[in-house]
């Protein structure tokens, strides 16, 4: 079930490094139904500019308190408006939308690979998989500050990589992934982040026969499969054509979409 909550109460907004923010709001229906990898679609202003809603992945939910938490980066008009919200304000959201990660897995060794703000949906995924599986996360970012919210949000076992080496390995998350794959064989991997990172990750997981799910982005209008605007090319497993990121995704098995 999808819900439209025109006036969800904002319960907190914290500024983090690299123009990122943690925003929480009260939406018990969404918190209850949301699956990891799903997103909410937000109207950032009542006026008509920006006109469209903005899709943001659900980063964390507190089902008892009915809270949904987002971790987002200010990149333009819509996210800038979002960052001006304060506790007590209201926010117009639709959700949970899209197909999330496949979480039918237990008793397995699982990898999460996240880059920058792409870590956000993987936090929620870890929240739901960690009881029954052995999770290792490879998270990368610009610097130590950008990765600080990770500790605040999850206690899973993380290996970090930064561009400047201020924490963890200096270099790419895929370096960490390769190093670890030389030692063990996990059952599945999940990735979200910049396209370059997803491409490199897919090259590696293919070589190691490791099933991979990726969470993709696209510009969206409706967010519910009505406009056919958010398409991405089908991968080797399908025939010619496009998939809708908002409905068939945003999470896909790596071979369902053309990453490379």
């Amino acid at each position: 079930m999808k819900y439209h909550i025109p006036q969800a109460l904002v319960t907190g907004q914290e500024k983090k490094a690299e123009s990122t923010y943690l925003l929480s709001f009260h939406a018990p229906e969404i918190a209850k139904d949301a699956q990891p990898g799903q997103f909410v679609h937000i109207k950032t202003i009542e006026a008509y500019d920006p006109l469209l809603r903005r899709p943001i992945s659900i980063c964390y939910v507190d089902r008892e308190k009915g809270l949904v938490v987002l971790w987002y980066q200010v990149v333009g008009k819509g996210t800038k408006l979002l960052s001006s919200l304060k506790t007590g304000d209201s926010i117009d959201v639709i959700g949970p939308l899209g197909r999330g990660f496949d979480t039918a897995i237990s008793g397995e060794k699982i990898y999460l690979i996240g880059g920058g703000i792409g870590i956000a949906p993987l936090i929620f995924l870890a929240q739901s998989l960690k009881e029954e599986n052995n999770i290792t996360a490879f998270f990368g970012g610009k610097n130590k500050e950008q990765l600080l919210p990770v500790n605040q949000l999850t206690s899973i076992n993380c290996e970090l990589a930064t561009e400047d080496g201020s924490i963890g390995h200096q270099g790419f998350v895929t370096d960490l992934l390769l190093r670890r794959l030389a030692l063990e064989k996990p059952a599945r991997a999940y990735a979200c982040g910049p396209n370059g990172m997803l491409e490199q990750t897919a090259l590696i997981t293919r070589k190691h026969n490791l099933p991979l799910q990726v969470s993709l982005e696209s510009v969206m209008a409706c967010g519910v499969g009505a406009c056919l605007g958010c398409t991405c090319e089908k991968g080797s497993s399908g025939e010619e054509g496009w998939v809708k990121v908002c409905k068939e995704g945003p999470v896909f098995w790596e071979d369902e979409v053309k990453l490379l």
Binding site: D49, L51, S218, V219, A221, C227, L228, T231, G241, W242
Partner: peptide, 23 residues
Amino acid sequence: RIGNPPSRLVETPAGLLNAIGLE
């Protein structure tokens, strides 16, 4: 019809440009 390749949507001030291509 498979329609046009992405990108198919662009937001403009108070407007939306689409080129779905009758998929």
